[in-house]
Every structure is written in structure tokens, then in C-alpha cells.
């Protein structure tokens, strides 16, 4: 951009007003998180009384102590890692080779196979048939079911396929000369070149796995297998109408509100830790999704 001094006074006013409004929006995005963190560190009594606004009132770690000794909390945390890592690897294992095949001009019936993928983006059978199918396959209440059942997403396949199609044929010629087969060409030529696309798809998978809650809630009855989000949901629901908790207000330093807030903080922390690393992909990778058939 050109030098600031070139701009008139009206322009400078405009620039400052704009910055102010953006600042307000950013703060309003940030505030709820600060508020929740403050509640989690306040006493239950003060939180219940609505005295927490920005900073902890009567700083205490009681809510964290309450939640961190809960084995079900750690169990669900571990489960979330299993689903996120296992699910993302499973997705890539289906999507990368599949998308490579779909990108090959010599694939017989290529239009048909591509349409088969695209159609799933336009029409899906809905919640009930999906659930009944899952049950008929015997995948209810299983780690494997959750990991494989959500592995493929048409959008991700097409995104990956488009990237492969954009890689010039000349890149693979040298490998072909050396007698490489398709598996070797994919692994040694295409996968390294497609790193941004793979990172994007992996990011989509990780985010949806980490945050996924609805199907985990529906498909898993065994509480030892539920991910963090379902545990969180159960706990929030339990706390909000649990008699035991309203009685603790005067005897304990925590309350339903502070415990809920503490769980929320605990489950956001990993996201915040990886967030700076994700950041650099937003502007490049994520926009590969200009999906075309």
C-alpha cells in the first residue's frame, strides 16, 4: 500500500474508524472466552451470584480440582485423541489413493466414478437410514465404527482430485522412465507435491473429528467410549439440573457454573495450542476448495 501521508484527512478518519470497529468485533469474539476462563477460576458462590465479569472473583482452582480427578474426563479426552488421529489417518488412506485414481485420464468410466462421489454431496439419505445402516453393519458402540464410518467426504475427495489434476504430467515422467508403477508415482511424486492439499484435507478432518458430537452421541451408548464433546454435553446437562450441585453452593468452592466453565477451558486448550500452526494454512491451503466437476 502507498504511503499514509498521501491520504486526505477524510481517509485517515475512515481508516481509524474502521480499525476501531474491527477492534470492537475482535474483542467481542474474544470476550466470551475470557469470561468463561474467569468463571472457571472464581468461587461457585460468586459465579452463581453473577459477580464475575472480566477477571476471577476470589481466585480458586476448586472447579479444576473437581474435574481433573474425574476418570471419565480423562477417558473421554483419550477417546477424542483416538478418534481424531485414527479418523484422520483413515480419511487420508481412502481419499488420497481414491482421488489419485479419479484424476487419471485412463481410468475407465471416469465420469461415472466422479459423479458417484459428487452425488453424495447433493443428496444424502438422512439421519435415520444412516443410523439403521450403521446398526445393521454392527458398528454401534465401537471405536472402529466411528473411525471408519465418517472417513470419506465427497468435498474432500474432489478437492484432492482437483489438486492432483493440476499437477503437470511432466512431473511423473522421470519416475515413469525409471519404471515406477502407479503406487510409486503416487507416493514419490504426487504426495510430496500435494502437501498443501493434504494438509488442508487433514485439517478439515481433524477439526470435524475433534469437534464432532452428534453422531458420537447417537452411535455410542458405552460411556467408556464417548469422546470429550459428548462427556462435556452430558456433564453440562447433568450439572444444570442436579440437586446435589445446588446444595454445594455454601459448602464447596465450586458450582455447576464453574465446573462447566472449567471443562470448557480444558477442552479448548489443545485447540489453542495447535491454532498458531493452523493459521498459516488458512490463506493458502484452505482456498484450494474451488471445487469443480
Amino acid at each position: 500500500m502507498a504511503n499514509m501521508n498521501l491520504y486526505s484527512r477524510g481517509d485517515r478518519m475512515f481508516v481509524w474508524l474502521n480499525m476501531f470497529l474491527i477492534g470492537v468485533f475482535a474483542l467481542s469474539t474474544l470476550y466470551p472466552f475470557i469470561y468463561i476462563a474467569a468463571i472457571s477460576l472464581s468461587t461457585g458462590f460468586e459465579a452463581r451470584a453473577g459477580n464475575v465479569v472480566l477477571t476471577p472473583v476470589e481466585l480458586t482452582f476448586a472447579a479444576y480440582k473437581y474435574i481433573l480427578v474425574e476418570p471419565a474426563f480423562w477417558r473421554s479426552y483419550l477417546n477424542t485423541f483416538i478418534y481424531t488421529i485414527g479418523g484422520t489417518l483413515m480419511s487420508l488412506a481412502f481419499i488420497i489413493p481414491g482421488a489419485y485414481a479419479l484424476s487419471r485420464p485412463q481410468l475407465y468410466g471416469r465420469r461415472f466414478w466422479n459423479l458417484m462421489v459428487a452425488f453424495t454431496m447433493w443428496f444424502n439419505a438422512g439421519l435415520i437410514p444412516f443410523f439403521l445402516n450403521f446398526r445393521d453393519l454392527g458398528l454401534l458402540d465401537s471405536y472402529f465404527g466411528i473411525i471408519i464410518g465418517f472417513a470419506v467426504n465427497g468435498f474432500n475427495v474432489i478437492l484432492m482430485r482437483n489438486f492432483f489434476e493440476g499437477i503437470p504430467q511432466s512431473f511423473e515422467e522421470a519416475a515413469r522412465m525409471d519404471g515406477a508403477n502407479d503406487f510409486q508415482v503416487l507416493w514419490k511424486v504426487y504426495v510430496p507435491l500435494a502437501k498443501p492439499a493434504i494438509a488442508t484435507v487433514a485439517l478439515f478432518c481433524i477439526v470435524s473429528r475433534w469437534n464432532g458430537f452428534f453422531w458420537a452421541m447417537v452411535l455410542l451408548q458405552d460411556q467408556d467410549k464417548v469422546p470429550l464433546q459428548v462427556f462435556l454435553r452430558h456433564t453440562i446437562a447433568k450439572l444444570s439440573d442436579d440437586q446435589e450441585f445446588s446444595d454445594t453452593l455454601f459448602t464447596q468452592a465450586y458450582s455447576a457454573e464453574t465446573v462447566t466453565a472449567a471443562i470448557i477451558v480444558c477442552s479448548i486448550i489443545p485447540v489453542l495450542l495447535v491454532y498458531p500452526f493452523l493459521q498459516k494454512y488458512f490463506n493458502k491451503g484452505i482456498l484450494l476448495g474451488g471445487v469443480k466437476e
Binding site: P32, I36, N211
Partner: peptide, 16 residues
């Protein structure tokens, strides 16, 4: 940031 936070957490924040 909020895009990367699960709906359960967002709902928890709203409820609180």
C-alpha cells in the same frame, strides 16, 4: 478462532 471450537463448547458458553 470460534470456527474451530465445537458447538458443544459454544453452546456451553451461551448457556452460561
Amino acid at each position: 478462532l470460534p470456527h474451530f471450537i465445537s458447538s458443544v463448547i459454544i453452546a456451553g458458553i451461551v448457556i452460561t
